[in-house]
């Protein structure tokens, strides 16, 4: 999927994360802030990249402010931000891929 317009999903509350996606400059540019970056930074990055991969997002600036979210939360927030950027509001294909 293409990142058509900037979009935000998630919150800054404990155990959640806030994901912002914006049109990129030809690649995935990930800026991660996390309260547990030392413990789980690598895993969080992996989840984000996998989710973007599955959604076929190749070109985006992604900002994630993580407050200790579980992998499933991170995944859901990333998906939601990408869907919002595409203006998809109904019949969200959670866990799927939109062509």
């Amino acid at each position: 999927m293409e990142i058509k317009q900037p979009a935000v999903a998630g919150t800054l509350e404990s155990s959640d994360c806030m994901v912002t996606v914006e049109p990129g400059q030809g690649e995935i540019e990930l800026d991660l802030d996390s309260v547990v970056i030392r413990q789980y930074g690598r895993q969080i990055r992996k989840v984000i990249h996998e989710t973007l991969d599955r959604l076929d997002v190749k070109n985006a600036r992604v900002t994630v402010v993580d407050k200790g979210a579980l992998d499933c939360t991170i995944k859901a927030r990333v998906e939601c931000a990408v869907y919002r950027s595409n203006g998809i509001k109904d019949n969200l294909p959670w866990g799927g891929v939109i062509k």
Binding site: P6, V8, M18, T20
Partner: peptide, 21 residues
């Protein structure tokens, strides 16, 4: 109690809705 986090979230959502990122 994390109230600031909720306020900031609310304001970021509001700014996003009016196109400010």
């Amino acid at each position: 109690e994390g109230l600031l986090n909720q306020i900031v979230t609310h304001l970021i959502d509001y700014q996003a809705a009016r196109g400010q990122f």
